[in-house]
Write a protein that binds this DNA or RNA. Structure first.
Length: 221
DNA sequence: GACCAGGCACATC
DNA sequence: GATGTGCATGGT
């Protein structure tokens, strides 16, 4: 894996799709909520849940922190896994309110690595969610890895099938400038490319990355 | 009806 | 520490 490969992948995706203008949401807190709601879930379903929260006047750190978990679950129902995600939102907001008292600017003075470790202690916040919050809500130049990222690199023989999250993250961070806008756009473009051309059981004719060394369809990954 | 979606925690071996 | 399973709605 070389920085040239990563540059080329980025260039090809950007050339095809243009800037993705992520995160598709309004403000820090809404982005954090969206990061939890979109776990293994289509974004269109997440927008329905977010709309419900907004209509209920509940898209607010203190409001969610104080809300009954069953009511919260009903509001976010369209996003799927609603009972699980309601608990996750509650545990996240327990941390958020304890840490900021509702003033999210208090997070600005905390080192990225410290923040990441704290986020990872929250039940329901794993590595991708933590990194998404850091990158898209808190403007920290940390690379977000997701299922598409691994699948795309694997199908182009750029990583091994058993490469784990931290390894893949390090591939991007060690071989590129640590740039907020680059990391923002790169992950968004990988998701866009994955959605259209890199589904688990589908082949991928027309993918912007066809020019790279690749196999059309590797072992249903 | 099958497949898919911007994961995560927990049980079990 | 790897591997399997539950969680659930909504679109294609």
């Amino acid at each position: 894996m070389t920085s040239e490969s990563l540059d080329e992948i980025f260039r090809l995706m950007l050339e095809r799709f243009g800037p993705q203008d992520w995160w598709p949401g309004d403000g820090r807190h809404e982005i954090m909520v969206g990061a939890i709601l979109t776990q293994n879930t289509n974004w269109t379903n997440v927008t329905k849940a977010i709309d419900n929260l907004k209509r209920a006047g509940a898209m607010d750190p203190v409001a969610i922190h104080n809300m009954d978990v069953h009511r919260l679950a009903q509001l976010i129902r369209p996003a799927g896994y609603f009972n699980v995600k309601a608990k996750r939102l509650k545990s996240f907001h327990d941390w958020l309110i304890a840490r900021t008292d509702g003033d999210l600017t208090k997070l600005d003075s905390v080192e990225t690595e410290v923040l990441r470790e704290e986020l990872l202690t929250i039940s329901g916040v794993g590595r991708e969610t933590a990194d998404s919050i850091l990158l898209y809500a808190l403007d920290r130049p940390t690379f977000v890895v997701d299922a598409y990222t691994g699948r795309i690199l694997f199908r182009h023989y750029l990583i091994d099938v058993d490469a784990d999250y931290e390894y893949i993250k390090d591939v991007f961070e060690a071989n590129q400038p640590r740039d907020l806008q680059l990391f923002n756009e790169y992950h968004a473009l990988l998701v866009r490319t994955g959605k259209e051309f890199c589904k688990p059981m589908a082949q991928c004719e027309g993918c912007p990355l066809e020019g790279l060394p690749h196999d059309i369809y590797r072992e249903a990954y």
